[in-house]
């Protein structure tokens, strides 16, 4: 496996890139401040990133942000979706993350048990 393979990806992916540049359907933001990291935010972020790659979710963007200011609920994740309220999940872990990917991101049903806030 070497970096030259990126050129193949480039040719293959160019088409859906044009689609994606218009607007990502869903934006996932993981809080990566000190308390978030200490509570396991990296594993949560890694799971989101991995699932997006594995399921080829070309319309989902995963990004990180700083401290969310609610240390007792870390790791925290916000899901932004055009035309819908922002859903905030708390006390996340890789298993919960997988469920959020399937039920919320893929099938459109937020996992109410993990929701700490809807904005």
């Amino acid at each position: 496996m070497n970096l030259e393979e990126l050129k193949k990806i480039r040719e293959k992916a160019q088409k859906d890139v044009e689609l994606r540049q218009k607007q990502a359907r869903i934006r996932v933001v993981v809080g990566m401040g000190t308390s978030g990291i200490a509570a396991g935010a990296r594993e949560v972020l890694k799971t989101f990133v991995e699932e997006v790659g594995r399921r080829n979710l070309t319309d989902v963007l995963v990004t990180q942000t700083g401290e969310k200011g609610l240390a007792s609920r870390e790791p925290m994740v916000e899901i932004f979706e055009e035309g819908k309220p922002v859903v905030v999940y708390g006390n996340m872990d890789p298993e919960k993350t997988k469920r959020v990917v399937v039920e919320h991101i893929v099938n459109g049903n937020p996992v109410s048990e993990y929701v700490v806030e809807v904005m």
Partner: peptide, 17 residues
């Protein structure tokens, strides 16, 4: 190497992993 393809594209994520 990716030209305009974003570094967070699913295919690129799988490659980087």
């Amino acid at each position: 190497l990716l030209g305009g393809v974003p570094i967070n594209h699913p295919e690129v994520i799988s490659f980087l992993t």
